[in-house]
């Protein structure tokens, strides 16, 4: 009985995160939001597109806008290499594709290992997109706050 309770409590604390890299930084995103990972494919252009929007793609009948995270997060733009891919994430009822340099790993991070990002650093454009920070094996993973990245209200 006690064990069971412990397990339930434990499972609440540990979350799975998909770790991907953009430029030199490793980001994490709650795996529950990730719909799928697809390779880079031709985009249909969007009228009067803003720089970070690469266009829209047809994902089996659903139209998905695709955002280049390098540009969105203020890193220099580069050519996509073979490791680059699109992570399709769910935001509310909609799908958005984000282009990242590479997908690294799926890791478990327990709630207590997450630090509040705001207390750690101030200033800088990218900071507002990061809600939490985890240090895993001496490496910093920044947990992406998707709602503030995509300016969508929760």
């Amino acid at each position: 009985m006690d064990e069971a309770i412990e397990m339930i409590q434990g499972s609440e604390e540990i979350q799975e995160y998909l770790i991907f890299s953009v430029d030199s930084i490793e980001f994490g995103i709650d795996i529950g939001r990730v719909k799928e990972i697809i390779k880079i494919q031709p985009f249909s252009a969007v009228p009067n597109a803003l720089g970070y929007c690469k266009g829209i793609i047809n994902l089996r009948g659903t139209i998905v806008p695709v955002v280049d995270m390098r540009i969105k997060l203020g890193f220099p733009e580069t050519e996509y290499n073979e490791r680059a891919c699109i992570i399709v994430i769910m935001l509310g009822a909609e799908l958005i594709g984000i282009i990242v340099d590479a997908v690294r790993d799926v890791i478990h991070i327990s709630e207590k290992d997450l630090l509040d990002a705001a207390s750690l650093y101030d200033g800088g454009e990218r900071k507002k997109y990061t809600s939490k920070i985890a240090v895993i094996d001496g490496k910093i993973k920044q947990i992406l706050d998707v709602f503030s990245v995509f300016e969508i209200e929760e």
């Binding site: 969007v46 009228p47 009067n48 803003l50 955002v67 969508i152």
Partner: peptide, 15 residues
Amino acid sequence: LPSYLKHCSSSLDGI
């Protein structure tokens, strides 16, 4: 259109 698209474009007039 996906509603996020309006964040992707300066104007979607005409679409």
